[in-house]
Design a protein around this nucleic acid. Sequence first.
DNA 1: CCGGATCCACTTTGATACTG
DNA 2: CAGTATCAAAGTGGATCCGG
Lengths: 136, 136
Amino acid sequence: MSGTHTDVPSMISAPLPSPVPADEHERCPVTDVLRRVGDKWSILVIVLLGRRPYRFNELHRGIEAISQRMLTRTLRALETDGLVHREVFPTVPPSVEYSLTPLGRSLLVPLSALADWAVEHRGDIAAARQASTSDT
Amino acid sequence: MSGTHTDVPSMISAPLPSPVPADEHERCPVTDVLRRVGDKWSILVIVLLGRRPYRFNELHRGIEAISQRMLTRTLRALETDGLVHREVFPTVPPSVEYSLTPLGRSLLVPLSALADWAVEHRGDIAAARQASTSDT
DNA sequence: CCGGATCCACTTTGATACTG
DNA sequence: CAGTATCAAAGTGGATCCGG
């Protein structure tokens, strides 16, 4: 990539109205989205569902370290935001299948860009943390 | 937009080893980064510093709704991760200037992609939330 | 099989007051 | 001006038990 002279397109660089609209800082869509997917499990779930639909316990086994509670909460939150679709099959033992909605699938794209950045610069971040740990 | 058949490049779509490496879910660089910038103020600070260097109280006035404590903590965290540079001028009234490091500046790019997505789909998310509120 | 409910611990954020 | 200290409140994640 062309690299360091980041042009920063998009509205994120648009001149702010002067002081940040303190009453709307909670409503900043960027922050809002980041806080949604920035939790402990959402990304993992989104990535997994991006590969194919999963059933609840399948997802549970797929992640292992997550508790039922958090898996349920995460899925509900993603469903509420229209990122995940939940379909219940009225079989004898209840069966529920989760999949990504088109909206959720579209989120995978910018998420990939951030993923690339994270992977590419994980070393830099780790180094910076080390440096500040063993600071003078 | 070409939209729905998201190709999903990058390693985020690379086949996972089968069950998610449960022991490393904490170390997933994507989640790690997202949780860093997914807090309440980091993005705001990064975006502001992306425009030009700021001094502490200048930043404080720029955001308003943030407390001194959180501004300090946010800046320290960003500095620790090598995203923000802190320069102290030993003037009579102490003066500290914060600016984005090249690393921090490079983060602005994928952040912009996510920002675009958030802005573009904020309506969809809002609608989804509404729908689930007044659900059958 | 899916997931709600309760209780508890840890983390994050915030209000206020004080300092070099 | 640029922080730090302290306390309190809220949010988040987890263990376990219970129900449809």
